[in-house]
Amino acid sequence: MNTFSIMWKNFKSSRRSLYSLYIFMFLFIVSLFSEMISNDKPIIMNIDDRVYYPYIIDYTEIDFGGELETTPDYKGYFITNLLESGDNWAIFPINPHSYNSINYNNMNPNPAPPSSDNLLGTDDRGRDVLARLIYGFRLSVVFALALTAIGIVIGLFFGAIQGYFAGRIDLYLQRFIEIWGSMPELYILIIFASIFEPSILLLIFLLSLFGWISLSDYVRAEFLKGRNMDYVNAARTLGLTDYQIIIKHILPNSLISVVTFLPFRISGAILILTSLDFLGLGVPSTTPSLGELLSQGKENISAWWLSLTTFVVLVGTLMLLIFIGEGIRESISGKSS
């Protein structure tokens, strides 16, 4: 049996990790369809025997017989009136708020406590907390996956080159990495945040510049070990090129350490994004983010629904990831029957 199938078998034997993986995958896949779950636009609308799909198509008010050339406020006076007349009807998503839509109908001052309209209340600008949590979770996980993937590609590249060729190449690259790694990451982020318009792509770019270093060290060590294994020597005597040896022989055997790190790197990346947003160095406030919700919770201590719900989502996500990571780690060290 192949090592990865052995790993999977061992992983499955740890119930906690397996269920964590299922729950996490479920939440992530569901969150990918956030627009269908939480949106202020109806999924489907029937007005005067014509069917509209506001969720997919961008209509203007003129399309509904209004005057403005802008997207209508589907929960505003104009549309509500239309819906109440005749046979008109609309199906809204389960949570009829988007992460950016402001609930003007709320009686309470913002931040408003949970109500039947806003299940988890609103933030200090009147935006629905549940919607922001759903979108924020998705953004965090996608951000973390992207950051991890980029980090792994760069880390594998540098680590493989250093470890395989060793000697002088390794020496120079290692010095370069030391200098590179000693650059103050946070200052660079602050400086860039003030020069450029902060965005999620900029953050991924900046964090990728440094995120690969810790991984490349591990890959380098694995390759340094691997290059002296007899099967690598055997491959050389079989006439394989350096590239073939790296790809076919050493890389598959070094991937284990990378795989072990995956969930922990993902949870680390989520934490980084959250803390940057909390400090106000991260994404702009129009973007849904867990960190921004937390900082609002700090500003409005009495609005418990802000900090508590974000806390639960954040801790839940990190815990699931850490349980998964633990399971993977166990499945490698465990017996390979």
Binding site: T3, M229, D230, Y231, N233, A234, K248, H249, P252, N253
Partner: peptide, 12 residues
């Protein structure tokens, strides 16, 4: 090689 445990790549 001497050690048949390290001379065969475990992933192949």
């Amino acid at each position: 090689f001497q050690d048949p445990f390290s001379s065969l790549s475990p992933r192949m």
